[in-house]
Design a protein around this nucleic acid. Structure first.
Ligand SMILES: [Mn+2]
Ligand SMILES: [Mn+2]
Ligand SMILES: [Zn+2]
Ligand SMILES: [Zn+2]
Lengths: 141, 141
DNA sequence: GGTCTTTTTAGACTACGTCCAATTATCGGC
DNA sequence: GCCGATAATTGGACGTAGTCTAAAAAGACC
């Protein structure tokens, strides 16, 4: 069972971020702001429902969006099952344009990642740098 | 319009990879093996349908899977619209376990990426290294 | 041509993200 | 505390895209 002080502290955290701490939002925060997982929206919904069965999916999705806008969460595009295909099969890095979502290749030699071999407890199969930002000097009209 | 020689060359490429070059597969290869985009499966389907209207979705999905298994394509988990949420909002890298799909945090200081500032023509908002592989020394029973 | 194998197909099914109009909860002024 | 205004929540409809299947079509081989 969860302590009242936890909920109190969560409510304070939400208020500090400029978010009104409704019961639903506190329940969602209780899971998603402290987990070491990287859950999808539906996983958050499933989890929150176990001790708050009446919460709706729309509320969970809206709340995650709200938390993200207020800097309490970030969204990572890393969910398995949503893939794109790349005919360049040799190692390379990727740039994702914030404006368009377009994915561009960055040659392997253009960046260098140090200390990958020092990672403890993992057998590395591959790695890449994902850079996000904007193209400068958009094609002038 | 496409030249016969292109199709012939594509068919050879498929055969070399151990794939029987049916008309559908050649049509799919004609787009996906040479594009600079990083298309989703459905985008490939939409595109291929424009000059091969009767191709089914299942064939496109199966073929992309086949091409990937034979090393002609790779799958990237970078498609917008499929996100997970991360309560750790400060910069860090990520490890994705091939066996489980679990995403783990790698501290920012554990890796270093050189030459990001040298990238031409882009304003970088953020970047991260995505490492894929297997955890060594799985929890013994 | 006959037969066996491979490939393709249409469509059902599912998962999950989005949207909306109606309801409920909360807030500030009185 | 009461009341109108505002904000939040809800259920369910909707759309998109990925998966699966059983049957048909195409191709290989003799
Ligand atoms: Mn407190
Ligand atoms: Mn040739
Ligand atoms: Zn690429
Ligand atoms: Zn993380």
């Amino acid at each position: 069972m969860k302590q009242r002080s936890d909920e109190h502290h969560l409510a304070e955290q939400l208020e500090k971020a400029g978010i009104r701490p409704s019961a639903q939002r506190v329940a969602i925060a209780g899971y998603v702001l402290s987990t070491a997982d990287h859950p999808s929206a539906d996983e958050v919904w499933q989890r929150v429902k176990t001790d708050f069965p009446m919460v709706s999916r729309a509320t969970v999705y809206n709340t995650l969006q709200l938390f993200t806008e207020h800097g309490l969460l970030r969204q990572l595009v890393l969910a398995e099952g949503c893939v794109v295909f790349d005919p360049k099969v040799e190692p390379h890095h990727h740039f994702v344009d914030d404006a368009t979502g377009a994915i561009e290749d960055i040659p392997w030699a253009a960046l260098r990642v140090a200390k990958v071999d020092d990672l403890e407890g993992v057998d590395v199969r591959e790695y890449m740098v994902v850079v996000r930002g904007r193209r400068r000097g958009k094609k002038a009209p």
